[in-house]
Amino acid sequence: MRTDIFARLDREPEPPKIEVPRMTRTRLALFGGTLAFYLAIVVAVLLSTWLVTLDWKIMLFRPYQQWPELHAFLDYYVVLGQRGPTAVMVAAWLGWRSWRQHTLRPLLTLGAALLLLNVTVGAVKLGLGRLGPHYATQIGSAELFAGGDIFPSGHTANAVVTWGILAYLATTPRARRYLSALSAVVALGVGLTTVYLGTHWLSDVLLGWAAGLLILLALPWCEPLIGRAESMILSLRDRLREQLRARHRLVPSLPVASGGPRPVLIPQPSMGTGEPVRETVGAGSGRTTSVRSESRPASEGRLAPPLTAPRAHSTHGHAGHAGHSTHAGHGTHAVRSERTPVTPAGSRRPPHSRPLTGG
């Protein structure tokens, strides 16, 4: 019985065709506008404009001291922007979606989005090296290129991408609208929570929102690559399954003693119309035992005893011997071997017995 994720999928009815989002003119215009906003925030921070002054005003206001009763709740709420917990929760939901829809696209789309998020946001963080509010050294300074990793906000960008991917993969317009509103509320709340806690500047949050939205808007460009990756994974699964089935068919049903060597099959060419001849090699032992199985026609019965030449009879025998000699004169006939049959209990002939002779 198969226990992989595809076992039940093969028994489910075929789902309706899922429409893959494309890069439309509207989406392209939104992408261009968001990119322009992203660059404007970066330039404003680099030039230490009014945006940096606003950052310092909010930081010196210290929201967490103005409304301390919110601190306990927002400490937990900000977890919705952490990459680890959110990725696990969303991946569980999309895994169930993949099971029901007979496709790996939801999980592969999530993986592609998180990969883009880590590469783009991480590169800007390390490149600009901005320090956070708690580590600022000079009032009014942008705190850039000081070895920090705070700009843009990773919590904010991750909340936009992780929860926004649910709206991106929605199959109905109604579900897409509801999930878009929900993901927007979560992402906005996570970004403002980081400002309240004093872990990010306001400009960090603005850039994080733009960075996450750019990834969601650019996902249609990744759909062909996601489709090829899904085809490769499914074809690899099918090949592995066929190899396992072929290996299962080659395993013989030979009894193996406990602790003894296991047989290894070495296929040999077939003989005639019979079954292929196989050699069973005892692994770990110094012996090789040939096991030959050849089929015979169904009409063939038991093998006849071997034909031997008639025995020469003595002229000094009794009447019975004479009778045998007379019968032997008609031709060759089958006789039983004179060798004493041996059984597990020993010989059936009494010890020291001599054949009877006439006289």
Score class of each variant (00 low, 15 high):
residue 249 R to L: 10
residue 231 S to I: 08
residue 174 R to H: 01
residue 170 A to W: 00
residue 27 R to I: 15
residue 105 R to I: 12
residue 132 G to I: 04
residue 58 I to Q: 06
residue 303 L to C: 01
residue 305 P to A: 13
residue 187 A to H: 02
residue 82 Q to A: 15
residue 296 R to I: 15
residue 126 L to Q: 13
residue 353 S to W: 15
residue 319 A to L: 14
residue 164 G to T: 04
residue 246 A to Y: 03
residue 60 L to S: 05
residue 127 G to M: 04
residue 248 H to E: 15
residue 54 L to N: 03
residue 81 G to S: 02
residue 278 R to T: 12
residue 94 L to P: 06
residue 243 Q to M: 14
residue 214 L to R: 01
residue 328 A to G: 05
residue 84 G to Y: 13
residue 152 P to C: 09
residue 54 L to P: 00
residue 50 W to E: 08
residue 230 E to F: 06
residue 7 A to P: 02
residue 54 L to Q: 05
residue 119 V to G: 06
residue 138 Q to K: 10
residue 139 I to T: 14
residue 129 G to K: 05
residue 294 E to C: 04
residue 70 L to S: 15
residue 329 G to V: 05
residue 331 G to E: 06
residue 153 S to A: 12
residue 128 L to R: 02
residue 37 F to Y: 12
residue 116 L to K: 07
residue 58 I to D: 00
residue 274 G to I: 05
residue 199 T to R: 03
residue 95 G to W: 10
residue 103 T to D: 06
residue 215 I to M: 02
residue 235 S to L: 08
residue 251 V to I: 15
residue 253 S to A: 11
residue 139 I to G: 03
residue 243 Q to E: 14
residue 211 A to V: 03
residue 160 V to A: 05
residue 302 R to F: 05
residue 202 L to K: 01
residue 243 Q to H: 09
residue 155 H to G: 03
residue 181 A to R: 14
residue 264 V to N: 00
residue 309 A to I: 09
residue 80 L to Y: 10
residue 221 W to D: 02
residue 290 S to N: 04
residue 258 S to A: 14
residue 10 D to M: 06
residue 295 S to I: 11
residue 131 L to Y: 04
residue 297 P to L: 09
residue 268 Q to K: 04
residue 169 L to E: 07
residue 293 S to L: 12
residue 240 L to F: 11
residue 91 A to D: 02
residue 248 H to C: 04
residue 93 W to Q: 03
residue 22 R to G: 12
residue 222 C to H: 08
residue 1 M to T: 14
residue 309 A to P: 09
residue 50 W to D: 08
residue 276 P to L: 06
residue 156 T to S: 10
residue 299 S to L: 05
residue 347 S to E: 10
